[in-house]
Amino acid sequence: MSEQREHPVNKFLRMDRMPSIWCPGCGIGTTVNCFTRALTECDKDLDKVAVVSGIGCTGRVAGYLNLDSFHTTHGRALPFATGLKVANPELDVVVYSGDGDLSAIGGNHFIHAARRNSDILCICVNNFTYGMTGGQVTPTTPEPAIASTTPYGAFEPTFNLPHLAASSGATYVARWTTFHVRQLARSMRDALSKKGFRFIEVIAPCPTLYLRRNRLGEALHEMRFYKEKSVIKHGADTREAALDYRGQIVVGTFVDTRRPTWLEAMNKRMSTVLGEKFVPYALPTREPKV
């Protein structure tokens, strides 16, 4: 027997909260793995990394990560994160959100965070359903998938999240599936070291609700499906990256650019107009400033 080693993920987890609430085969844990590998490789001061999530299965990520973490209200992780980042620009703020949380109840915040280029990495685990509440239709559920609130099949057009992010102004946009663990970890690592509103969509299995209700088999079958149907197209036009029910999944890094973040833009404007009179925001300190 060799020496007992710690699981490399353990130091990033609140071990007193394990095991997770996630169902067998749920893809969220796999994305967390990739995220912790990205944290290992990105050379960040982990005390300065804050994870913010909303409500839902993916919303629980914040509670499991051994980082400063905030489990906010449904859909509002991004505006919370925006406030956190503006008030404490030294932090690396990561929002971990599900498809319903981010694009339905939080949809308005999503496009505006991208537009104003809030300096946030936003990871969206898209499993095409509201898992925590029992498998209802979301803005990403493709026709004709069955959900508990579309018992005869979904029929609304869906959001193409990478396109929504890109067209709203995100500076980094990528999509992977939970099959693409190495690429996903690398993508997260790259995105962590960039600035601006960065968006990574991860297609993930929800075996208990989405797969079961649609008779798509187990999570493992879904992973094989991702492997078979995914096509890597870096730099693809996000308009071409829409997902349908069981068709091709375009994955890759679609956008990787740089433009001023909200804070940079504000500082520039204020300096230009106010010159010497402009007092830039100082990091909050514990010491009372008298």
Binding site: P79, F80, V86
Partner: peptide, 10 residues
């Protein structure tokens, strides 16, 4: 909620 984020940021 942004203000709540701001408070926890210090």
């Amino acid at each position: 909620i942004a203000v709540i984020g701001g408070v926890w940021g210090g």
